[in-house]
Measured scan of single mutants.
Amino acid sequence: MDEEYDVIVLGTGLTECILSGIMSVNGKKVLHMDRNPYYGGESSSITPLEELYKRFQLLEGPPESMGRGRDWNVDLIPKFLMANGQLVKMLLYTEVTRYLDFKVVEGSFVYKGGKIYKVPSTETEALASNLMGMFEKRRFRKFLVFVANFDENDPKTFEGVDPQTTSMRDVYRKFDLGQDVIDFTGHALALYRTDDYLDQPCLETVNRIKLYSESLARYGKSPYLYPLYGLGELPQGFARLSAIYGGTYMLNKPVDDIIMENGKVVGVKSEGEVARCKQLICDPSYIPDRVRKAGQVIRIICILSHPIKNTNDANSCQIIIPQNQVNRKSDIYVCMISYAHNVAAQGKYIAIASTTVETTDPEKEVEPALELLEPIDQKFVAISDLYEPIDDGCESQVFCSCSYDATTHFETTCNDIKDIYKRMAGTAFDFENMKRKQNDVFGEAEQ
């Protein structure tokens, strides 16, 4: 370990593993360490099931009705991949897709007046949907046509809207959309967690709705994908990429100290040895004095023996409960997957309800979601602090990732990755940087 590296990475969460992969592909010498004996950090999948019970201090362990412990891979952080989103792009560019198998999530649902409705995925579904009345549908269709044709580089498509100054509230007004449709559009399509976006320039919202539609167009059922064997497969896929390009991995490796000289990182000390480096990437748990708390998320993992009611017996789905429907500031989400994804025993389902904490009784906040899941065989409640770095790391060369937020997709995580890359490399992130180099010394032969 007593060696000189360009970059040392602490923690094998998804953000850290993707950055480690990119740095290795770009010719950097990388050492990647984790104090845990497993990959994934906060974003790991726990197996066998006995391990999950232990982690949540349920000492009696799983009953026999849960089947074989080894058949379970339970995500600690519930997220899906947008089919046309940035993480899929990263997987394709790096060819990490060859280590993973994905399934399309069967449906996306939205909560309205105590019931759940399928988010329409085709024009026919939209016309048949009970989510809105006849005239509302016509106006909504006009709005969707506007979004589909919108091109930020072609003012002819703006229809009198200025993407940089017109607020989204004004765009909704222009198409005369009612409150329910606005809730549905902002939260189930643009996937905002709160209503803060309404008074911001509309460009980002329009682009988010386009991303949803384009992702949906790829597979038809929903815009989301999920990897077989759980999300823990993602960091491992990128760790393989890093290793192929010469990255060194050490799990179960305690970090005793991060060594600084004149305010700059110069190395990491572990078990009496020092590895030197020019730059350091880590998750917040490794540098508690360089991060601040930015809120909390509650996630309740529920094991069920039945599909969720009114989802047409889907073996995977997402449910969004827009905040307006339950008098909150932030949406509540449910991600459900099952034995069909090799993450649970035969006939079992895993539904994870999550939201940003707003009160001193977080469990009560998630109740509307839990009511949709009854009866629940077993619950595991996790309340996590969200951390963000206190500075950009440019001076110390210590670059810290943000905690995983309450969103049900990876777009915010990818933004964090691109942002850290830019601060480390001094140049904007470009997907081309992730391409495997042809015929290089570490390149794998085609399968």
Rank of each mutant, 00 (worst) to 15 (best):
Y111G: 02
T359K: 07
T427V: 06
D6N: 04
A126S: 06
N433E: 13
L191P: 03
E271A: 08
R218V: 15
L92R: 10
L189P: 02
K89S: 01
R55W: 08
L241D: 08
M90L: 05
G69C: 07
L304F: 10
F399I: 03
L372M: 00
S215L: 08
F399Y: 13
C277R: 02
I350L: 10
D313E: 00
S44W: 10
V25C: 04
N312D: 09
K142Q: 08
I298L: 07
R208H: 05
P155R: 07
P375T: 00
D257G: 12
L280S: 00
I321L: 06
A243C: 10
G272V: 04
E371V: 02
I46V: 11
V265F: 04
I308L: 06
T97P: 08
K79E: 03
P284A: 06
I383M: 11
F140C: 01
T94A: 07
N415Y: 05
H341S: 08
M23T: 06
Q57W: 15
L228V: 11
V25T: 05
M434T: 09
S108I: 02
W72S: 02
F150I: 07
E95V: 05
F431H: 05
D283Y: 01
P201T: 04
Y117W: 13
V9K: 14
Y387S: 00
D183V: 07
V343W: 15
G443R: 10
E367Y: 02
A128P: 03
E444G: 11
V366P: 11
V206W: 01
S45G: 07
Y111D: 05
F150V: 01
S108A: 15
T12I: 01
E50G: 11
L372H: 08
I352N: 12
Q438L: 03
R138W: 08
L386S: 10
Q325L: 09
P155T: 00
C17V: 00
F158L: 11
I77L: 07
L144S: 00
G267P: 09
K293N: 07
L76I: 14
Y219H: 09
I321K: 13
A382P: 00
D183Y: 05
M90T: 07
K379M: 04
F399P: 02
Y172N: 08
V297Y: 05
Q200R: 09
V297I: 07
Q325R: 10
P288W: 12
S330E: 15
G443P: 08
L203H: 07
S316K: 05
K137N: 05
L304W: 05
K418F: 13
L211P: 15
A344D: 14
K278W: 13
Y349R: 10
K137W: 00
L100V: 14
Y38L: 04
S403T: 10
Q279R: 10
G85W: 01
L280E: 12
N312H: 13
R328K: 09
